[in-house]
Nucleic acid binder design. Structure first.
Length: 897
RNA sequence: GGGCGCUUAGCUCAGCGGGAGAGCACUACCUUGACACGGUAGGGGUCACAGGUUCAAUCCCUGUAGCGCCCACCA
């Protein structure tokens, strides 16, 4: 016996444990074609959030569906070491205990991070199990596993030897909070309301002053030129002369460079090559000195200008400048502005908004800084990736994301891959005493390289830096399968089938996997990229801690069940659309699960049980045949939807069928049969119901795996937990279902029409009324007779049959096909209201007919429109006109008010 | 500054070159023997605006407005 309701709290964890124990998610269990999805590895120390719930529900749905189709499904689990994020968490913990990374030292710090990983690394995987994710757990990988680390070293060394990884000293985005370089992608520009300061620079050997505008006055300590546009007549006479910088007294040239925009500021722009990307380019063009005046904490440092400070005079004030050393950018700015004002070099201050780069994780203002870093020639690697998308070897769903992808890839910049962190893959490069570089997979190999190159044993030390986290996640589709070894798994499961992920990591991750996969495997890492939206709250607001609208998926699972959450997610997931989620929607998901559960209970209570050898083609009753036809429609729609990654359509097809077709109509129409005396009819109905219920459960397994599994076993469809590998439903072969469909459709229309009328006339449900048919065909009368019990029950009728005699005055009348349904409600209904109703319907029919006839009267329409459209319009016009006539007659019968 | 997307019922969204849809919310009624996490019925929309193409436009094209997202050199 099924329980009265599905107790998700008790059943879900129990079932999952049993699945796992069974090895139900293990790849390689069938000989079918592989179907592979790589999990986007979540941060090992993270916990499940709504974005995870979304993406993993979609992936699990696809995997479960393909597994039922007989595919050898592999959903590869694993986690990411997430360099910055994890190091940040552990550093915060240290700080809370009064410790610090620096005090601990590298090895001890890393030991702490591993310890933290051991403690919290299981959180996310436990939570994935709560969601029902059918991952092949024994294959779980971590990006810093030995095998994956070996893959990283292999890739680094290979790319280095191919000239695709190199070291360079240039400006990087420096995050002063993490004291590390970050890549362009990790920079977020934020609009900041600030000021534009106009500063006058005295022109050497003249009384003239050149005014520059800047948003960063503090960088003037590092100015090495002022640039004007060569076309700018205001300044041509100054090009080649020098200005003397206030404060430092440095002489810097006035140069002509087209970078200077006459429209912006004063048209003269100060050039600080070491602290601005554009200025750096100008500096390179004009061979300018590039003094850095900010250190790795973004504090003022005077080291590189100390010498000149000792030798200046005049406008300069070395003593003031020295007071700036060690100040933050913000403090230095204030001090410098105040000093400039005091010395009357400050011309004016204007309010100004501009885009200021911030670190996406630290939220610190990024400082362009001149440092030596490792770079990857992304442009070279990008070309094959672009080609793969262009020629369709990889498809984005929805396709529009290809534009975004191309735009970025075609203009890709060198990828800065080194990070000044400790947690991550240490760069496999060693340096000799004179800065010689040896790139190798191990220290021994590096030493051997050094020996070979210099003929002596060199003292070599490994690079302190680690690699960008995305460097290792870019290898995920093949490193998890054993690469660089040529494993059987690699041969079988690569390329994977589909990557499911959010648009926010197309550049970070998707593009890198494509580049690395093509370069090292010679084939794309996945054939389809299914991009989903962002999870928002029920009002469409982005979830954020500061807004306080973050919903914890685990809370929702506790309250409503994983099935409910999953179903709600699927219902919301349309292509390229953000997903709205919250308690109301998840509650409605639970409502659906409950509905299915209760439908099954109803079946069980009525003796519905699977019948061995049941053949859908042999079913005779129209109701059963109609149900089978409806089931086929659901199977076709659901399958097509999943094939197209239309998760919302999949959920809707299942929902509509289960709730609308099965519960609302089939079950209700079946009740009289089940309670009736025709045993053969009841038996056929039970067998059909069982068959259809079994198909429904299978259709829904990918969406709501827990409840369906419980039903599958509880109703005797199969052995415990055999649903996971039960075959995915195929449309049944049914012949000539049209007659059955027409018949049941008619019954539904009859019942609905009577209900509608009673509702409109405010006839209380407790009042039973006869339903008579006038002008009805033989077929209609037969149908009415066959479904009399159902109509009585569902249309609150105490009698159903042909009208004897003429339509009585005061009876309500409904036009249904050729027949007029007569409800002799004299005394029960308000004749005025009925007259009003009939008049309204009459006028509506007349207006429709008028409109359609007008359309048909137009010569162009008949001549140019498609013949079937014209024919259809004629038919509709005729029908409307007939209906109008019959309603007019009905009104006449009702008598005058 | 460049690019992409959106604008349809109170809300969230489908849809589509020829008859305006769903879910939720709302209103009324119903404790009918699977389910009140239920049932039945109902109200509610000039399909953002302006042009154009077409026999026919919510749908295609152009423009306008508003909103959202991504990218971009901090004067």
């Amino acid at each position: 016996m099924l329980e009265k309701s599905f107790d998700h709290k008790a059943i879900e964890p129990m079932l999952y444990a049993a699945w796992e124990e069974d090895g139900a998610f293990a790849a390689g269990a069938t000989g079918g074609d592989p179907f592979t999805i790589m999990i986007p590895p979540p941060n090992v120390t993270g916990s499940l959030h709504m974005g995870h719930a979304l993406t993993f529900t979609l992936q699990d749905t696809l995997v479960r569906w393909r597994r039922m189709q007989g595919r050898d499904a592999l959903w590869q689990p694993g986690t990411d070491h997430a360099g910055i994020a994890t190091q940040m968490v552990v550093e915060r913990q240290l700080a809370a205990k009064g410790e610090s990374r620096a005090a601990l030292g590298r090895d001890a710090f890393l030991a702490r991070v591993w310890q933290w990983k051991a403690e919290s690394g299981g959180t996310i995987t436990t939570q994935l199990r709560r969601l029902g994710a059918s991952l092949d757990w024994p294959r779980e990988r971590f990006t810093m596993d030995d095998g994956l680390s070996a893959a990283v070293r292999e890739v680094f060394v290979t790319l280095f030897n191919q000239g695709l990884i190199y070291r360079d000293r240039r400006l990087v985005n420096w995050d002063p909070k993490f004291r590390s370089a970050i890549s362009d992608l990790e920079v977020e520009n934020k609009e900041i309301r600030g000021s534009l300061w106009y500063i006058s620079y005295p022109v050497e050997g003249s009384d003239e002053r050149l005014v520059v505008a800047t948003t960063r006055p503090e960088t003037m300590l590092g100015d090495s030129a002022v640039a004007v546009n060569p076309e700018d007549a205001r300044y041509t006479h100054l090009v080649g002369k020098f200005v003397v910088l206030p404060l430092t007294g440095r002489r810097v040239p006035i140069i002509a460079d087209s970078y200077s925009d006459p429209e912006k500021g004063t048209g003269a722009v100060k050039i600080t090559p070491a602290h601005d990307f554009n200025d750096f380019a100008v500096g390179e063009r004009h061979s300018l000195p590039m003094p850095s005046i900010l250190d790795r904490d973004a504090r003022i440092t005077l080291g590189e200008i100390e010498d000149e400070l000792a030798h200046v005079a005049g406008v300069a004030d070395p003593d003031f400048v020295r007071t700036l050393a060690g100040l933050s950018r913000e403090d230095a700015r204030k001090a410098i502005v105040a000093e400039l004002e005091r010395l009357e070099f400050l011309v004016k201050i204007e309010p100004h908004t501009n885009q200021v780069p911030h670190g996406d994780r630290s939220d610190a203002v990024i400082e362009p800084l001149l440092t030596v870093q490792w770079y990857c020639r992304a442009d070279v690697l990008a070309a094959p990736a672009i080609a793969a998308v262009e020629d369709g070897r990889v498809k984005f769903v929805p396709k529009q994301w290809e534009n975004t992808f191309f735009a970025w890839m075609r203009d890709i910049k060198p990828w800065c891959i080194s990070r000044q962190l400790w947690w991550g893959h240490r760069i496999p490069a060693w340096y000799g005493p004179d800065g010689q570089v040896f790139v190798a997979k191990t220290a021994d190999e590096a030493a051997a390289l050094a020996l070979a190159a210099y003929g002596e044993v060199l003292e070599i030390t490994q690079d302190d830096d680690v690699l960008d986290t995305w460097f290792s996640s870019g290898l995920w589709p093949f490193s998890t399968l054993g690469w660089p070894d040529k494993t059987a798994d690699l041969a079988r499961y690569y390329p994977t089938d589909v990557l499911v992920t959010g648009f926010d990591i197309i550049f970070f991750w998707v593009a890198r996997m494509l580049m690395m996969g093509l370069h090292f495997m010679g084939d794309v890492p996945f054939r389809t990229i299914a991009i989903h939206g962002l999870v928002r709250d029920e009002r469409g607001q982005k979830m954020s801690k500061s807004k306080g609208n973050v919903i914890d998926p685990l809370t929702l699972i506790d309250e409503y069940g994983a099935d409910a959450l999953r179903f709600a997610v699927l219902q919301q997931t349309g292509p390229g659309r953000d997903i709205k989620l919250g308690p109301t929607l998840v509650a409605s998901g639970r409502g659906f699960v409950t509905k299915l559960w209760n439908a099954a209970r109803f079946c069980e209570m009525n003796g519905v049980a699977p019948v061995a050898g049941f053949d859908p083609a042999s079913v005779t009753s129209p109701l059963c045949r109609w149900l089978l036809a409806e089931t086929n429609t659901a199977i076709v729609s659901a399958t097509a939807a999943l094939e197209a990654y239309r998760f919302d359509d999949y959920a809707f097809a299942c929902y509509q069928f289960t709730w609308g077709s099965f519960c609302d109509w089939f079950v209700e129409l079946a009740k009289p049969v089940l309670n009736g005396s025709d045993e053969a009819a009841a038996a056929e109905l039970r067998a059909t119901a069982a068959h259809v219920l079994g198909l429904t459960i299978r259709l829904l397994q990918p969406a709501i795996p827990f409840a369906t599994d419980a039903l599958w076993e509880g109703m005797g469809f199969g052995a415990a937990r055999s649903l996971i590998s039960a075959p995915w439903p195929e449309p049944m072969v049914l012949s000539n279902v049209a007659a059955a469909q027409a018949e049941i459709a008619w019954v539904i229309r009859l019942i609905s029409a009577v209900r509608e009328l009673r509702g409109e006339m405010n006839v209380p449900p407790a009042t039973l009324a006869p339903v008579f048919l006038a002008d009805a065909s033989r077929q209609t009368l037969d149908r009415a007779a066959r479904y009399e019990d159902a109509v009585r029950r569902l249309a609150r009728a105490n009698q159903v049959g042909p009208l004897v005699g003429t339509i009585p005055t005061g009876a309500a009348q409904i036009m249904l096909d050729e027949a007029t349904i007569v409800l002799p409600l004299a005394g029960l209904i308000d004749l005025t209201a009925e007259r009003k109703r009939l008049t309204r319907d009459h006028d509506r029919a007349r207006d429709d007919a008028d409109k359609l006839e007008r359309k048909l009267a137009g010569a162009d329409f008949v001549a140019r429109a498609k013949p079937d459209v014209v024919e259809d319009t004629r038919l509709r016009a005729q029908t409307a006109r007939d209906e109008q006539a019959r309603l007019a007659a009905a009104l006449a019968r009702l008598g005058a008010g």
